[in-house]
Amino acid sequence: MNHHSPAWLRAAVHIGGWLPLVWLAADAPAGRLPVNWIQAVEQRTGLYALTYLLLSLACTPLAAIGGWKAVLRHRRALGLYGFMYAALHLLAFVGVDYMFDFGLIWADVGTKWYIIIGTTAFLLLVPLAVTSFRYWMKRLGRAWTRLHRLVYLIAPLVLVHFALSVKADWSGLRGDVGRPLLYGAALALLLLMRISPLKHTLSAARMRLARKAS
């Protein structure tokens, strides 16, 4: 993990991490949010959370296949930004949309799969966020690695949560399927690149190319 990361990359990660929040915070007083702003805040924070989860999942293949080891230093930060937006997403739903009226939430969505799956994904994300610091990494040892593999379950859950919340028919691939499909394709690609035969083929191909170039 001690690969040196250039300053610009560190800056890009952290500016990029806060930018969507700054942007959202600037849009609100400027009247640039739509009239149904609560829904807009829910949808935007949700998309940011999924985006940062995918970015954190992109680090390993970028390092293993692309040979860009520096990104590994930012995997944790990207995951934590994902968690931050997921927490804001949940807070917008519980606190702003339903004003902490848990009875109402239960009556409205207690049996709805997109909420059950979304909540599960968030609850699974909490231990990962809590243990993402060096102290826990040392203390948990091998268990830490196993625990953090939960992200391979969480990311697909988040995607299913997203897909279930749009007006679409998934068996016939009709309706508002465009954006979930795009995110789904990205996730599928990132997970596929972790499977060893594919990983080795791609990484060997890159090395051959690199040798030719030099």
Binding site: N36, I38, D108, V109, K112, Y114, L164, S165
Partner: peptide, 8 residues
């Protein structure tokens, strides 16, 4: 998939 009991 979602509730129709309430609206904003």
């Amino acid at each position: 998939r979602w509730s129709q009991a309430r609206e904003r």
